[in-house]
Design a protein around this nucleic acid. Structure first.
Lengths: 210, 210
DNA sequence: AAATATACTTTACACTGTTAAGTTATCCAA
DNA sequence: TTGGATAACTTAACAGTGTAAAGTATATTT
């Protein structure tokens, strides 16, 4: 079985080659300029060879989206050490903003573009595991905050959506050039941090007069 | 001058014809299926005729984006009658969610797609007037809330971004098929309303024990 | 050594946005 | 009324896209 294994490994290597080339094009030339032909050019194969490793372009973008989630998770490793769940929530929000602003291409694939979701729909199991795992971390943190009476008890789903919605809203508006038109460039990130701070402050029960 | 005027009017009529056809295609067949050729087919002109009325495809999408803002504004007319600014803020949020969920194609053009902003960048004045006007209504309402001590005084810009971010986040996640994967379809809208309710509640000072 | 399977390429199709050149119809002055 | 200019529109074409079918080597197995 050693030989079949080696072949499998080679296959994965070429897959990685394709993904790396795609991401490079994405970052260097923007989404609309990523084409199968350019990817093929970059890895020095013919365009159709790409189709021996990925069903279609959407599947490539789905793989990249998954890699994005891995990177976000790595980015969040440090959170585990924070004991106070509300503080952890705050830091999680800051991390999310950082990640999105520092990796707009990954973020786009993870949360904005349709292509990865189309690929997902074409798969046997249509579950969005990456997204589900990410949101569950947020929900768990919120539940812990409520348990410890750090924030008011409420529907965790609704609160999670509110908070995720807010940070996603900020990042996606920025990535798609909406904030740039309304806020000076150097104030965008600080204002985001301020917005997050504001909302954390608003829900922090310890902040209220007793 | 009557003749030149009539010509101008005709020109506007064909422009409207193009925009209507584009929007119809957009709604019926989805964004990726709107092509100049299909638009031309629908209005029974040759593809290149479209270019006599619009510089390029981006400019068509920009015009549609502007129409979307008009529709949002109309949708918000009713708000003027609400005296209490916090109540008005709440209703404004609900209106926003409604508008986005009921008109996903317009919403996409207004706040998600790159094309309209690219067209904007290509224009002499690069100001995003539509977006600016919309956000200013939100800011004014927040300022009024703070004046009347209905919510805590703070940086209006940051608070406005937080609230806009939240509702935009929810709508855009839904439009781009992220919520559909995590929340049962029939619970999406109610949960959004709940999220909005939650945040309004969290900032409402009258809700706090004195 | 012959047969088969693997890896890859060539060619082709049906699209896309957009430009340049060509055509027809309209209008206006002589 | 006729001739020339102008406006409105179309045809043809370019360079690109995703992708499928068929062809061609190379490597592996019998």
């Amino acid at each position: 079985m050693g030989i079949a294994e080696r072949k499998e490994k080679q296959k994965l290597e070429i897959k990685k080659l394709i993904l790396d080339a795609s991401m490079k094009l994405f970052v260097d030339e923007g989404f609309e300029n990523v084409s199968i032909r350019k990817i093929a050019d970059l890895i020095e194969y013919s365009p159709t060879t790409v189709y021996l490793y990925f069903k279609d372009k959407d599947e490539i973008l789905f793989s990249l989206h998954d890699i994005g989630f891995q990177k976000l998770q790595e980015h969040n490793q440090s959170l585990a050490t924070i004991k106070n769940p509300l503080l952890r929530l705050h830091k999680m929000g800051e991390n999310y903003l950082d990640f999105g602003m520092d990796n707009p291409e990954y973020y786009d694939l993870m949360f904005i573009q349709r292509a990865p979701m189309n690929a997902l729909m074409a798969m046997e199991s249509c579950e969005w595991k990456s997204g589900d795992a990410a949101i569950n971390v947020l929900k768990a943190t919120l539940a812990e905050c409520m348990e410890k009476n750090l924030i008011e008890k409420d529907d965790v789903n609704a609160v999670a959506m509110a908070i995720w919605g807010m940070v996603h809203g900020l990042v996606s508006l920025s990535i798609r050039d909406r904030l740039e038109k309304l806020v000076p460039l150097d104030e965008i990130k600080p204002t985001m941090i301020k917005s997050l701070h504001w909302i954390i402050n608003a829900i922090d029960l310890s902040n209220r007069p007793t």
